[in-house]
Design a protein around this nucleic acid. Structure first.
Length: 557
RNA sequence: UGGGGUAUAGCCAAGCGGUAAGGCAACGGGUUUUGAUCCCGUCAUGCGUAGGUUCGAAUCCUUCUACCCCAGCCA
C-alpha cells in the first residue's frame, strides 16, 4: 500500500496507477545509477532521496548501480565515495552494489541477437563522417554505406572488434532504426565502440564497451527494475530505451523523467565542480564550500536536514531554481532542535571585572539546550578576566543597541550582570580592554533597580581554549553562476570572502571533549561543527543564525 | 510546424470541472538570560497570452508567447 503521511508527486501517481492495474505485480524496484566519474552532490541527493524514498514508500527496494561503461573517466575512488555518501544519507541498497560492467557478457550477447535479427550493423564511418550522415536537428540523416551488410559480415566484424583486431575508432556497432527520424537518438545510434583501455572492474577483459543507451535499459531489465527514474534530458532517449527492450523482448521497466535540482548561488555540474577542485579554487571535493555531499557533511549539514530539504522541494517536470535559503533553513531547523549550545568568542576583547577577587573562580552550571532538558547541563568556569566579542561593545552605540556600552549594563549569558566603566585604548585608538563591575546579586535573578540591555556570550580568559574557526560563506556572489554570459564564466563569480579563517577564537573548555564532526550552536553566532579531518580545535561554520539585528542595521538607524 | 518538454506569488509547490493547500523569503506584533527558537498576524478576485465550451474553468478545447533539452564513438 502507498499509505503514508508523506506527500506524493507525479511519479507516485504513476506508481499508484500501476499498482491498481497490477502492471508490475504491485512491486516497486528502483535504482540509483551514478557513473563513478566524480563525487556526488546535492543534485544527486535529490535523486537518491527520490529513488530510495519511492522504494520505502511502496515497501520495495532500490539498487545502487554504477553505470561504468566509460572507464577512462571513472575510478575506484569515486565508487568508494559514492557508497559512503549514499550510506551516510541513510539509505540501504538491495544486496551488493551492482555494476553495468557485471552485465558486459550478457550485453554482448544481446548485441549479437540484434545483429542476427538484422537490427544492428558494423559501421566504419569515422567520427566526422558519422556527424555528416547524422543530419541536423531540422534535416534528416542519410543511410550509412555500411548499413546493408549481411548478418554474417556484421557478426564477423563484431567478433573481430571484440577480439582486438580493430583500433579505437575504426569501427562501431550501430542499431539499425531510422536515419530520417525526427529524434536524433533514433538515427542508427552507436551501441558499441572499440576502446583499448583498462577497466576498473573488468580489467583488460574487454576492448569493446557498450554505450549508455544500450546498457542502461538492458541493465534495468536484467535487474527487473519496475520504474527507471532519470532526469529530463533523457526524455528524448526514451523511444530508444523502449526500442531496445521491445526488439530484444526483455522485461520492460518504465522510464520516468523528473527535473534535476538547480540551486541559486551554486554550481551543480560535475565538470565545473571538478574544475573548482583541479584548479584549486577550493581545497578538494569535500571542501565545506562545495555542494558535494562530502562537502556538506564536512560543513556540518546533517543527513536528516538534506533529506528534509529534498522532500520539501518536491518532484516535478518543470525546470526550477531552488533558493539556497531553503537548504539553509533545513539545516537551521535540524540543528536548532538537536545541537547543544556552547559559548565561543570569535573576535576576543578582554574584560576585567574590577570588583571580582583575583583569586576567585566559580563554576556555573549551564543548560545545553533551551528547549530540551534531556540535553543536560555542563560546567562553565568563571573568573575575574573574561573575553567577549569585540562586536558586542560600542562606545557610541547606534539606536536600538542591546549590547555593552560605556555605563551600560548587560547580562553575561548564564552568569552575572556587568556594567562597563571604562574602555582602555591602544595608541591607535582601538579599544583593547574593558573595565567592568559585576553585580553579585544577579546570578539567576534580575536586578531590581535597573535593567540590563541584553545578553552577551563570554568565556573565562584563564580557562579559554584557543581555536581556529573557519567562517564559510557562499562560494559564488552571483545568483546564477552557471548561466551563459558573454564574457564571463562561473569562475569570475567566485566569492573572494567565501572563507575567513579566525585563528584567535576562544572556546569554552567543554569543547575540548567534543567529537570530530559534532555540531554545536555557538550562542548568538551560528551553527558550527568540529572539523571532520583536523585533529586540533578547528571548527567550521555551518550556517549563521537568522539575524534580525543585521536587517535593522542595514536599514540604517 | 525538426523533435521532445515546461509555464500557479520573489522562490519551491499542491491542485486533476465546484470557486487558489503548504513551505521558504518578506513584513508587522508577542514571549525570551541567544537581536536565536517559539507564538500570532499580513502576503495570488489571481493560475504565461487571447479566445471558446460550461450554471461553473488553474483544471476541457483552440490560438499565440516565453523558457528548457537534443546533432559525443559521454552519461
Amino acid at each position: 500500500m502507498s499509505e503514508t503521511s508523506k506527500p506524493g508527486n507525479f511519479i507516485t501517481q504513476i506508481i499508484d496507477k500501476d499498482n491498481e492495474s497490477g502492471k508490475h505485480g504491485g512491486k516497486v524496484l528502483t535504482r540509483f545509477p551514478p557513473e563513478p566519474n566524480g563525487y556526488l552532490h546535492i543534485g544527486h541527493a535529490k535523486s537518491i532521496c527520490l529513488n530510495f524514498g519511492l522504494a520505502q514508500r511502496y515497501n520495495g527496494q532500490c539498487n545502487l548501480r554504477f553505470d561504468d561503461t566509460n572507464p577512462e573517466k571513472e575510478s575506484v575512488e569515486y565508487i568508494e565515495s559514492i557508497k559512503r555518501d549514499v550510506e551516510w544519507l541513510g539509505f540501504e541498497w538491495k544486496d551488493e552494489p551492482k555494476f553495468a560492467s557485471d552485465y558486459f557478457d550478457q550485453l554482448f550477447d544481446f548485441a549479437v541477437q540484434l545483429i542476427q535479427a538484422g537490427k544492428a550493423y558494423a559501421c566504419e564511418l569515422n567520427a566526422e563522417q558519422m556527424r555528416e550522415y547524422r543530419g541536423t536537428l531540422k534535416e534528416p540523416g542519410k543511410n550509412s554505406p555500411f548499413r546493408d551488410r549481411t548478418v554474417e559480415e556484421n557478426m564477423a566484424i563484431f567478433m573481430d572488434m571484440k577480439n582486438g583486431k580493430y583500433k579505437d575508432g575504426e569501427v562501431v556497432l550501430r542499431a539499425k532504426i531510422d536515419m530520417a527520424s525526427p529524434n536524433i537518438n533514433m538515427r542508427d545510434p552507436i551501441i558499441y565502440r572499440v576502446r583499448h583501455v583498462h577497466h576498473h572492474q573488468t580489467g583488460d577483459k574487454w576492448c569493446v564497451y557498450p554505450m549508455y543507451d544500450f546498457t542502461h535499459c538492458l541493465s534495468d531489465a536484467l535487474e527487473n527494475i519496475t520504474h527507471s527514474v532519470c532526469t529530463l534530458e533523457f526524455q528524448d532517449h526514451r523511444p530508444l530505451y523502449d526500442w531496445v527492450l521491445e526488439t530484444l523482448k526483455t522485461a520492460h521497466p518504465q522510464q520516468i523523467e523528473f527535473a534535476r535540482l538547480n540551486l541559486n548561488y551554486t554550481v551543480t555540474s560535475k565538470r565545473k565542480l571538478k574544475q573548482l577542485v583541479d584548479e584549486k579554487h577550493v581545497h578538494g571535493w569535500d571542501d565545506p564550500r562545495m555542494p558535494t555531499i562530502s562537502g556538506l557533511r564536512r560543513r556540518g549539514y546533517t543527513s536528516l536536514s538534506i533529506r528534509n530539504f529534498c522532500e520539501r522541494i518536491g518532484v516535478t517536470k518543470s525546470d526550477s531554481v531552488v533558493d539556497v535559503g531553503m537548504l539553509e533553513h533545513a539545516i537551521r531547523e535540524d540543528l536548532d532542535a538537536s545541537a547543544n549550545r556552547v559559548m565561543v568568542v570569535l573576535n576576543p576583547i578582554k574584560v576585567t571585572l574590577t570588583n571580582y577577587p583575583a583569586d576567585k573562580e566559580e563554576i556555573f552550571i549551564v543548560g545545553n539546550h533551551p528547549k530540551n532538558e534531556e540535553a543536560g547541563t555542563r560546567e562553565v568556569p568563571f573568573s575575574k578576566e573574561l573575553y567577549i566579542d569585540a562586536a558586542d561593545f560600542s562606545e557610541v552605540p547606534p539606536r536600538k543597541w542591546k549590547r555593552l556600552t560605556l555605563d551600560g549594563a548587560v547580562r553575561l549569558r548564564g552568569g552575572y550582570v556587568i556594567t562597563c566603566d571604562e574602555a582602555i585604548k591602544n595608541e591607535a585608538g582601538e579599544v583593547v580592554e574593558l573595565l567592568c563591575r559585576y553585580d553579585e546579586k544577579t546570578l539567576g535573578v534580575n536586578p531590581e533597580d535597573y535593567k540590563p540591555k541584553g545578553v552577551i556570550h563570554w568565556v573565562s580568559a584563564k580557562h579559554a581554549v584557543d581555536a581556529t574557526v573557519n567562517l564559510y560563506d557562499r562560494l559564488f556572489v552571483n545568483e546564477a553562476p552557471d548561466a551563459n554570459y558573454e564574457d564571463k564564466t562561473f569562475l569570475d563569480f567566485i566569492n573572494p570572502d567565501s572563507l575567513t579563517v579566525l585563528t584567535n577564537a576562544k572556546v569554552e573548555p567543554s569543547l575540548v571533549n567534543s567529537d570530530k564532526g559534532q555540531g554545536f550552536q555557538f550562542e548568538r553566532e551560528g551553527y558550527f561543527c568540529r572539523d571532520l579531518k583536523e585533529d586540533g580545535m578547528v571548527f567550521n561554520r555551518t550556517v549563521t543564525l537568522r539575524d534580525s539585528w543585521a536587517k535593522i542595521e542595514a536599514k540604517g538607524n
